[in-house]
Each structure stands twice: as C-alpha cells, then as structure tokens.
C-alpha cells in the first residue's frame, strides 16, 4: 500500500457551539480521485477547507506528505503552495486578465520569472481550453470559462493535491460539462483530487473512491459501485434515493 498523501485523523471543527466535524478520518493516496458526497450542512466544505487551513481545526491531526499541517509551528503558506483549491464561486481576481490570474502567485509565491510564469500560464490555459482567452478579464468570461481559469490558476502552482468544492454548482447547466471535462482530464493525468460535488455521473465515471459524509463524520466509503449500487448505511441509501 502506497503512503497516503493526505491523512486526516479524528478531525473536529466547531463554529462556536456548533460542532460541524465530529471526528473525521480519511486517507487519500497519491493519484487517487476521491469524491465526497453528503447532504447540505454535513461538513464537506469545512473538511476540505481544513486541509489547507482556511478553517482552523478545533482538534485532530492532518498530515500532508508526512508533514503535520495542524502543527502551529508550520508555515502554512508552504503547504498551500502545493495544495490547489478551486471554489464554488471561482474567486478570480477581477482586476487581472486570465493570464494575470494564473501568473500572479507563480511570480509572487514561487518566485518564478515573468517569462516562465507567462509560459506556464499560457500552457495551463490551453490545457483548460482557453488558449484564445488569455487576455480576457474575468468579467468578460462565462462562469464556466472563469472556473476553468481558476483551475488553471491552481494547476500552475504544480500542486500535489487539488481540492474542488462544488465547482460546478454555481454554473448554468450547459457550462458544467466543460469544467467536468477538464477535471476528468486531470484525473486521467494522475492528479490527486478531493472533489466535493453533487454530480453523480462524474462521481461514478471518475472517482476511485466515493466518501459519503453525514452529520460531521464519514458515514460510508468505497468504490463508486459499492457506494452507489450497494450502499450499506441507511443514511447513504436515503441520500442517494433523494438525489436520483
């Protein structure tokens, strides 16, 4: 068994008196595509955001490539460089072009030269199918195109893991495909991915493993076939019943 790249141990997270994560355990191996499902409010986003510490865990441990990122001594920015994240609301920098969005952190964080950053940006934007839109500003792009720029922006940092939090939820239905296609391409390329989504088709086709979260814990996990076709937990059944 390969060494896990992300290891979450007994993760708890509370917002004030509201305990959102109640002991999450999860391991992700290199190259694995893990799709996380679960009802609204079950803590999927919170768990994902704990991995790059956009949320501070209340207790428990998270390891990333054998570094304990929950260690208060650690420079979290060093970890974040290698953990890409794509948000539901794109969060592109509106004052920069598509290319500028992809270049900025390469230059300011990875200290790449302008030429190198630009070259990488163009390559990544071509990968996500936006080679002809590099000089467009976010406001001039469709939601699907913006989300693909956001993916390119994360990829340009050469991340070891990519976190996707409902990246197609804010998109018009006709734009979802393009984004999912890019994600499939990434998965095929061997990228380690944690994907929170409601796209069951994507989960079935692309996921190596499906994790069902409910009530702040991992309720059930397994291959897509196991979880979708032979769910063990009543809650999973219930959830899948509602969705399909």
């Amino acid at each position: 068994m390969e060494q896990p790249i992300v290891r979450i141990q007994d993760l708890h997270k509370s917002f004030g008196s509201l305990e959102v994560l109640k002991g999450v355990d999860l391991e992700v191996t290199k190259g694995e595509v893990v799709v996380i499902l679960g009802p609204s409010g079950s803590g999927k986003s919170t768990m994902l955001r704990c991995i790059n510490r956009l949320e501070e865990p209340t207790s428990g441990k998270i390891f990333f490539e054998d570094q304990e990122i929950t260690d208060p001594q650690i420079n979290i920015n060093r970890i974040r460089e290698r953990v890409g994240m794509v948000f539901q609301s794109f969060n592109l920098f509106p004052h920069l072009t598509a290319k500028g969005n992809v270049m900025l952190a390469q230059q300011k964080v990875l200290k790449r030269s302008k030429a190198e950053a630009e070259q990488t940006a163009i390559t990544q934007l071509e990968t996500v199918g936006l080679g002809d839109k590099i000089d467009y500003f976010p406001a001039q792009l469709s939601g699907g195109q913006q989300q693909r720029v956001a993916i390119a922006r994360a990829l340009a940092m050469d991340p070891h893991v990519m976190l996707f939090d409902e990246v197609t939820s804010a998109l018009d239905p006709e734009l979802v495909r393009g984004v999912l296609d890019v994600m499939k391409l990434l998965a095929k390329g061997g990228m380690t991915m944690l994907v929170v989504t409601h796209e069951m088709g994507f989960a079935r086709d692309v996921a190596d493993r499906v994790v069902f979260m409910d009530g702040g814990v991992v309720e059930e996990q397994g291959t897509p076939d196991e979880v979708f076709d032979h769910p063990k937990s009543e809650r999973t059944k219930d959830f899948l019943g509602h969705i399909t």
Binding site: N52, L54, N77, R78, I79, R80, E81, V83, G84, M85, F87, S89, N91, L92, F93, P94, H95, L104, A105, K108, V109, A150, R153, A154, M157
Partner: peptide, 26 residues
C-alpha cells in the same frame, strides 16, 4: 469579498502579499 482573501491564501500568498497585489488594487 472574503473569497478574494481565500483564493489568495489558497495560493500560498501571505496577508501582506494578498493586500498588495489583490486587495488594494481592487
């Protein structure tokens, strides 16, 4: 929006860099 700070942070940018390159220009 908070998302701008988060996007910057997720790319490994420090608070100061995020301010300088992302928040202040906007």
């Amino acid at each position: 929006s908070k998302g701008q700070f988060e996007a910057a942070a997720s790319l490994g940018m420090t608070y100061a860099k995020a301010m300088q390159h992302i928040i202040i220009p906007q």
